[in-house]
């Protein structure tokens, strides 16, 4: 059996190395592109795309850092502005650029090539608020008031990137101490914490069987609700709740990895992600805005408001302080919330 498994492992290894041109792409688990685009890329560049999913973006980055001595991929997609400084500091990214297109003003990602961007913000359940005849909260501080008790669900920043983004937004807006004071108040006002976005959206959000009408999600989620509705609806059942200090801009990018093979194909892949086909196609696959300025926006995105303002900490602060912030958050919110 041991022999068999070693043989299997060896065979698997062989099959990877046997094909002369294989481009290993590491991505996070939400990566999704139209299949025909990928086939087109393989055909045009004469390489086989070998896509490996490394889990959540943060988890993926750590896997890359741990294996930097023996890189397991040639190019990485999905590193965002919360992680880019950490990635650069770890020295796993090779200088990457793309001549294709001009990047949107907001979607800058130093150290990598921006591919798409989006906003993490609060979503609310329209029907619930209509039925409850409750005015929408106007500020984050409203959420700490008794009228809004037990209405909010957020993801744990220790296990979810949306949860982390929302935490970072509150810190950028109020400063660390101010933010944690606010968290303490919403905690006492019946804040619910769930493990990840899926859990929050599908078991806690009032639209899907839960009891919380306000959830941390993406600004594009209302558009996705329309896109994936059963009978084609013209209005989303959810909407964005864009409050000051509750919006985080997320920019995702692609970069070559140091020590990676196939630099040429890797560069081609970077350009491929910036190409018009991908920039258009990714919108309704990954529900992000295209980073290349001037790309046509899918009509369904009309159901999503694009926030005018957002609050992000500096890249350097996110690199040096995130771990401490998450730890402090857990001690404050999770442990004491009984």
């Amino acid at each position: 059996m041991l022999k068999k498994s070693v043989l299997l492992l060896a065979l698997a290894g062989l099959s990877l190395s046997a094909l002369a041109a294989e481009l290993r792409v590491m991505t996070h688990s939400s990566f999704s592109l139209p299949k025909d685009r990928i086939a087109e890329f393989e055909k045009q560049n004469g390489v086989k795309l070998s896509i490996v999913k490394g889990g959540d973006a943060g988890e993926m980055l750590n896997k890359l850092i741990l294996t930097r001595a023996n890189p397991i991929a040639d190019v990485v997609y999905g590193i965002d502005n919360t992680l880019i400084a950490k990635a650069s500091a770890a020295g796993i990214l090779a200088p990457t650029s793309s001549k294709l297109g001009r990047t949107e003003k907001d979607a800058q990602l130093p150290g990598a090539v921006a591919v798409d961007y989006g906003y993490v913000t609060l979503n609310y359940d329209k029907t619930w608020f209509a039925k409850a005849e409750l005015p929408l909260p106007a500020t984050l501080d409203d959420l700490a008031k008794p009228a809004y008790k037990d209405l909010l669900v957020v993801q744990n920043p220790a296990t979810s990137s949306t949860g982390l983004a929302f935490l970072l937004a509150t810190i950028a807006d109020r400063g660390e101490d101010g933010a944690f004071k606010w968290w303490e108040k919403v905690r006492d006002n019946g804040l619910k914490v769930s493990k990840g976005w899926s859990e929050a959206y599908y078991t806690d959000f009032s639209r899907n069987g839960g009891s919380r009408p306000i959830v941390v999600s993406y600004a594009t989620s209302p558009a996705a609700e329309v896109f994936y509705s059963k009978e084609k609806i013209s209005e989303s059942p959810t909407a964005n709740l864009l409050l000051k200090g509750g919006v985080f801009l997320q920019v995702e990018g692609v970069a070559l990895l140091t020590g990676g093979k196939e630099p040429q194909a890797a560069q081609a892949f970077v350009d491929f992600l910036r190409s018009e086909g991908v920039q258009t196609g990714l919108q309704t696959k990954m529900w992000m805005y295209p980073a290349v300025a001037g790309t046509a926006i899918d009509p369904v995105f009309a159901h999503a408001q694009k926030p005018a303002k957002f609050s992000n900490p500096s890249l350097a602060a996110m690199n040096s302080k995130t771990a401490a912030w998450v730890s402090r958050w857990n001690r404050l919110v999770v442990k004491q919330a009984n």
Partner: peptide
């Protein structure tokens, strides 16, 4: 999932330490 994050076990802590904080 049903009880909320306050019922997190030590494995959740390990997960965070490894996967997020390295």
């Amino acid at each position: 999932l049903l009880g909320g994050q306050r019922y997190a076990t030590v494995e959740v802590e390990i997960y965070t330490l490894v996967a997020y904080e390295l």
